[in-house]
Simulated scan of single mutants.
Amino acid sequence: MICPHCEQSLLRRERPGNVCGKCGRRYALDPKTNPMKLNDLRVRRVAAKVTQDGQVPCTVGQLWYALSRRSLRDTQVDLGCAGALTVAGLIVTFVGLATAAVVAVVGGLLLAGALGFVAAEVMGVGRGRPRLDRDSFRTGPMADWRHVYGALPPGVLDDGRYPSPPAGQPESAGADTPGGPLLVCPDRSVAVFLDAMGLPARYGLTLVAAPDTLVSRTPAPVLVLHDADARGLGLVHRVRAARPGRPVFDLGLPLDAVYGKANAVPVRGEPPTASAMEPLERSGEFGADQLRWLRQGWGFPLVAVAPAKLLDAVTRAVERVGALTDPERRRAASVGFLTWPDGGTT
């Protein structure tokens, strides 16, 4: 790897304990010792890209996706093992044919193992599975980074806790100010980002993480921001069921903006339950292929949308909702109010 300080190439034996053997300075991440195979230079480079060289911040969760994006496209199959098994199998089989049948059987088993690796690669085993989950990234590589450098990479915001209510507002999430809209956003990383960009303060929004915290007695509109996966897409249905008669607006992320897009790299989690899929199947909003994709646990997280694009899309949506709920401006508002960039990833 390249030392992030002196930029000298280092062999594994030349960097014991994450200390450069040439300049003597400590670095945070060694690609040989972390599941995401990160190094300091790559983290800095990707962070600079995501934040547009510091023009807009990003959270740890948004950085996690940007760093995971490349590996999410790949399977977790080691074809090097397949090659080794193939060579060993051919040699053992050749020797076995000349000596003992049992040896040839062993060779055949080695070749079968090699074919298993190849089949797993073709089937895409492990594709879409993060090498490290988001929380482990924050408490692992990013904690190591802080230990070495004293702070997160430039422009990266800590998303360890959900944003607190504004000063003077009750701590209970959902005790919104009279008439103020509620923005339901379960993703802590995205909520921290929007709060840091001043969106709630600018539009009088109250951020809440879950629909069951909506305790307000006011008829204020509810805006729902969610991932494009089975649970996220079903969130709007749950909010509407929990608060009948209250205006509920789906801000996205819409599945059509990312599904099947070449530059949109999805994440695969646990398959959703039948109860989670039921409202989506009943709604008629999704095609058979999309429903099958969602049932397999695939989805596209909000943290995958580039921060600047995310802020722009949510801002425009909030403004359009304001127009739709304002009697004086309603007549001028158009029907469709949220346009997400196709495959709007980092």
Rank of each mutant, 00 (worst) to 15 (best):
L79C: 08
C3D: 10
N39Y: 11
V265L: 07
L280Q: 05
E7P: 00
V102F: 08
V56N: 00
L251A: 13
A175Q: 11
D176R: 13
G344S: 09
A112D: 06
P211H: 14
S216K: 01
R127F: 01
T213W: 02
A143I: 01
A88R: 01
A175C: 13
R246N: 07
A112W: 09
P186L: 05
G168T: 10
G322T: 06
S164C: 01
D326E: 14
T206D: 12
S189G: 15
A230P: 13
V190M: 04
G336W: 06
F137E: 07
A104S: 14
W64Q: 05
T346V: 13
A210P: 00
G204I: 04
L233G: 05
D74Q: 15
L41H: 01
G168R: 05
D133H: 06
Y259V: 03
R12I: 13
P221Y: 09
R292A: 15
Q290F: 03
G343H: 04
G54P: 14
T315C: 05
A308I: 07
A274Y: 00
P166K: 12
T59A: 10
E319R: 15
A84C: 10
P301Y: 11
P307R: 04
Q8L: 13
E328C: 03
G245E: 03
E121A: 15
G168K: 04
A84D: 04
W64F: 08
L225I: 07
L29V: 06
P130S: 00
D133R: 09
H226Y: 04
T345E: 13
R329W: 10
G322P: 11
L251R: 04
T59V: 08
Q8M: 12
D74T: 06
D212P: 05
R45T: 14
D326V: 08
R146F: 02
A308M: 03
A241I: 03
P272F: 02
V258G: 01
R240S: 12
D133Q: 05
G113R: 00
T315G: 07
W145E: 12
C6S: 10
R268N: 07
R70K: 14
V50H: 01
G61Y: 00
W64L: 06
P35C: 01
S71A: 15
A66T: 11
C58M: 05
A66F: 05
V125A: 11
A47G: 09
G126V: 04
